[in-house]
Design a protein around this nucleic acid. Structure first.
Lengths: 260, 260
DNA sequence: TGTACATCAGTGAACGCGCGTTCACTGATGTAC
DNA sequence: TGTACATCAGTGAACGCGCGTTCACTGATGTAC
């Protein structure tokens, strides 16, 4: 009856999960530098050497946690985005942004592990770059889809900005090809600005730089999401595009988010 | 001839400086979590217990480094801003932004110490909040001055954004009173967005999130500074306001920065 | 100007701790015939 | 279905290391009269 090769493998997989759960628990107390293999094995009631059957080194465990973190926040964004009508680009932008902030608030130490200071002495292996790009892809896809649908508002004509410099034009072309063909170059650059703003404001809130400056970070966040969405050219707040599909849909994490 | 009370005090002050210098050197190798009092004393050729004559604990040394970091980046921004004609608000915005990025690039581990993940177990004392606000004050003052001079471009009329929510309006009023009276509330909120974008993009570049996405972060940074300046309503690139004082002035750190 | 005393810098030994990783091992679980 | 062997999980002791902090101390530098 034992599923032959499966049993041992399944028990093994479960212990790997338990180790990572315990590691995340410790992460939320001590932060990444305080993560201790011995403390993990102690909590799980096993010998300190036992963990080496599952992770070859502390760095390998760290890598697993980082990959999980990227995957987790990426999935949150994908789910939030996926819960919106495809052609309501403003709603998708808001939902994705909120889901990222929510995830960060719910997993502050994982967020710090992934978007905070690099862990000294740790060199991220290739395995992390795929998961790392999931969130970015969600945001880029929203802008891209809006562009394809012709829903991006044209650049305000009275822009005081000079044309792109040679260097940044090259960079913008690469960026457009990489992430969103069919998007204008200066829109792509504004999307980069919005992307970095999103993580900038979340980091500032989480890392304590709003103390004494901003009392209610949530409301300010909500507003900057709107502002930056409009800055990129997205129609925010979302407009009724296909009547009938706008209101509901299962985006579980948006409590009173939409009541701006 | 010895300056009575002064001699011992001066030697003491010098050793404090040396300790902090050595600490910063180690910071740039191991990062904040790896900072070791014993390693510092070893490098300075003194007994490990000797350092306690100068810092009561590791935390106190960390605090000193953080305060120094804030002061250093704050001063860089002040100098850069101060090197521009007072009423060339676009130039001031650019100069301040560039100086912050320059400082971060020159002191990446101090930047991470101050703007990266909080050091676990470390609780910032009151001494840090004054120095921490210097950079912010420079940026806010530019927007404030521009507003007083009537140089902020009016909000683009066709804005698709709804009026401020009740919560964010309260927050915006507090913000305006705190940092820039005489600035419109939605401008203040956009200034917050620009402020967080500035540090967001610097952190992303420094912490490696541009790998594989952006090859030339400098040019993209330059452009987003322009974009976000315009977003706030500042006249960028800077216009000749008082003919004769535009070109020169001593902003030492702006190599080819202005050649956008 | 010289003596008596207080202050302070710096030492060296010790306390008590935790860490990552290796290694030879014991049993239990699976596999092949 | 039963036996022989290989694989793997988990143990416990040990290596070698570094850390922050305390404490009683020795001298040198300053201060007061």
């Amino acid at each position: 009856m034992p599923t032959t090769t499966g049993l041992r493998a399944r028990v093994r997989a479960e212990l790997i999960v338990e180790i990572k759960e315990e590691a995340r628990r410790q992460l939320s107390v001590e932060g990444a530098p305080g993560l201790s293999l011995r403390a993990i094995t102690r909590a799980l009631g096993m010998a300190s050497s036992g963990i080496y059957r599952y992770f070859k080194s502390r760095d390998e465990l760290l890598t697993a946690l980082i990959v999980d973190g990227y995957d987790s926040i990426g999935q949150a964004a994908e789910v939030a985005d996926g819960g919106c009508p495809r052609n309501d680009f403003g709603a998708r932008w808001q939902a994705a942004s909120y889901s990222i902030r929510d995830w960060a608030g719910a997993h502050p130490h994982e967020y710090a592990l992934v978007y905070g200071s690099p862990v000294p002495g740790y060199r991220a292996p290739r395995d992390t770059i795929g998961p790392a790009s999931r969130v970015t892809s969600v945001l880029a896809a929203i802008v891209h889809d809006a562009s394809l649908a012709g829903a991006l508002s044209a650049r305000q004509g009275q822009s005081p900005l000079p044309p792109l410099s040679r260097e940044v034009a090259i960079e913008a072309r690469r960026l457009v090809e990489l992430a969103f063909p069919d998007v204008a170059e200066d829109t792509a650059l504004r999307a980069v600005a919005a992307w970095t703003q999103l993580f900038g404001i979340i980091s500032f809130e989480l890392f304590g730089h709003f103390h004494g400056v901003i009392g209610d970070p949530g409301s300010v966040f909500d507003r900057t999401v709107l502002e930056m969405g409009a800055f990129v050219g997205l129609p925010v707040p979302y407009t009724q595009v296909t009547p009938g599909t706008t209101a509901t849909d299962e985006h579980d994490e948006g409590e009173d988010w939409y009541l701006i």
